[in-house]
């Protein structure tokens, strides 16, 4: 039982880390970045580069964040910005971009599965059993990311500007906020966070050119039930991630794999606001 709870906590934390970047870009731009999965992949390969260069494994995190930020900002300017008025087309263009990214990675790194050196390994004795240290560390990482994001959004001027743009873009502009640069930063940050999450999940998920795709759908569904609220994303990750784990454990893993997508679609049908509180 304790292990199940621990599993739920770590699963929720990882889901949160994987989705929060998408939440930031969707919240500000109202556009779903379907290349989110590809940015997770970029993060995984950034960590791989750190391993191959023989650098300290801990460097993988800042390095992946930086790579994601830069690439994300470029994508916003050249691909997403022209599509502000065509949100469905933006989904398609970013999906196409995802294809491009995974093919480029395949050409550069080969299509095989790669292994990344992890900064922490092994297991720890916990609740009459052993538990993966890396899952615990990843959970800690997710908590730090979530905390920093909450601080950024609620304690800084940039976060205030971003929230103003989310709530009422016209009024934000009338108060002198350059919403176009807020969008650029938000998309870049979203991509950077996706890339960071990709580096974090590398020891848990194999590194291959399509490693991000399975995560994309769950992240996408979680963001839809969370709107633009970090709190709602946290609730969604715990509830839907927990449900997934319970169904995988006591039902079948295949049904478990469907849980988040199906439950989120049904939830939105009944309550279009999802987990967003009033």
């Amino acid at each position: 039982m304790q292990v199940l709870i621990l599993d739920i906590v770590t699963t929720a934390a990882i889901l949160f880390a994987v989705s929060c970047g998408l939440l930031i870009s969707f919240g500000v731009l109202k556009i779903i970045n379907f290349a989110h999965g590809a940015f997770l992949t970029i993060g995984g390969y950034s960590a791989l580069v750190v391993t191959q260069m023989g650098w300290d494994p801990l460097l993988a995190y800042p390095f992946s964040l930086l790579v994601g930020l830069v690439l994300g900002a470029a994508v916003e300017r050249f691909i997403v910005k022209p599509l502000y008025d065509r949100p469905l087309d933006a989904i398609l263009a970013t999906w196409g971009l995802g294809i491009v990214i995974s093919q480029v990675i395949t050409i550069v790194f080969g299509r095989g599965v790669q292994f990344v050196q992890s900064p922490v390994t092994g297991a720890v004795e916990l609740f009459d059993g052993s538990y993966s240290v890396y899952r615990l560390a990843a959970t800690g990482g997710a908590v730090i990311i979530g905390g920093l994001l909450a601080l950024l959004m609620h304690r800084t001027r940039l976060g205030l500007n971003a929230r103003a743009v989310i709530m009422n873009e016209n009024l934000a502009q009338a108060l002198g906020i350059n919403s176009s640069s807020v969008r650029l930063i938000a998309f870049g940050l979203g991509a950077g966070l996706a890339s960071l999450a990709g580096a974090i999940i590398t020891p848990l998920s194999s590194v291959d050119p399509n490693m991000g795709v399975p995560w994309l759908v769950n992240a996408f569904m979680l963001v839809l039930v969370a709107g633009s609220s970090l709190l709602a994303l946290l609730i969604g990750s715990v509830v839907l991630g927990g449900l997934q784990l319970v169904i995988s454990t006591y039902g079948s893993p295949i049904l478990g794999g469907l849980t988040i997508a199906v439950a989120a679609a049904l939830l939105l049908r009944i309550r279009p606001k999802g987990f967003v509180l009033d």
Binding site: R157, L160, N161, R163, A164, M167, N168, N170, L175, I177
Partner: peptide, 15 residues
């Protein structure tokens, strides 16, 4: 829509 209804008074003033 002259105010950010969901932001606080302080945040509105800050803006």
């Amino acid at each position: 829509q002259p105010l950010f209804q969901d932001l606080t008074v302080g945040e509105n003033l800050r803006l």
